[in-house]
Amino acid sequence: MKKYIFLSMLTAGYLFLITPFTTYMRSKPFIEKLGYVPQAEVLKFVAADQKVFLADSLVLKSLFYFGSLAGRSGAELVLPPDYFSLYKTIETAVKLDPYNLDAYYFAQAVMVWDAKRVKEANALLEYGTKYRDWDYQLPFFLGFNYAYFLKDYQNAAKHYQKAADLSGEPLLAKLAGRYMYESGQTDLALAYLSTMEKSARNAAIKKEFQERIAAFSAVKRIETAMADYKRDFGTVSRSIDELLRKGYLKDLPVDPYGGQFFIDESGQVRSTSKFAFHVEKSAGNRGK
């Protein structure tokens, strides 16, 4: 009898502790959850024959972390992503397993858009092309990054050509040339995002692409209205209100990131959200 009372007391103690314990674990910042990730050079020494497994674990941890941010309320992120730790984790993963496509895909899907770490992502992707020399996806990502973010059309064309050669899809080679003008940037982004969204398997990543496609589709609607206006009046429209008033836009396009669209001095469509979710200031934002 005494044994059962003792066991009941222990079980009650466990139940008493488990909820605050779980809350504490959930609230830990990413870098603490992941633990300190030593440099890949050091990990290679201690990982013995489990280097690839270690790389897989790091990528999955990054993915789970990013997926956990999907608990967004309205247009706000519940917690700001710790992009710096994410980037370092992914970098370590590819040094342990330079063939890991998930790592490169994650870097491309998340790091270039949200963290604006295009040059770092490109460095990772170029490192990857040395190993995955059969894969068209990495040069395809690189071509897009050079064309869209860095406006380096020479490098973009080089990578798109490589993607075309590897995939046997000659259309890819024409991408950089076709969209090299500012007016074609939205089309370039939409073409790229649609390709990525269709093949995205992870729910959080897919949602990320869908939101961005929605934002760029809205921009495209405004750009089309502006082009119609210019055709009719010979001048550039200076405000979205004007386009609405004169019937070039049926309704006000919605920015999924919660911002307001406007036309800047150079005639480009921008949003006050800068196409990123507003982040609540809270503890745990260590990423810079």
Partner: peptide, 9 residues
């Protein structure tokens, strides 16, 4: 759970 390499994983 892999995004791009289920078989490889």
């Amino acid at each position: 759970l892999s995004m791009r390499q289920v078989t490889e994983l």
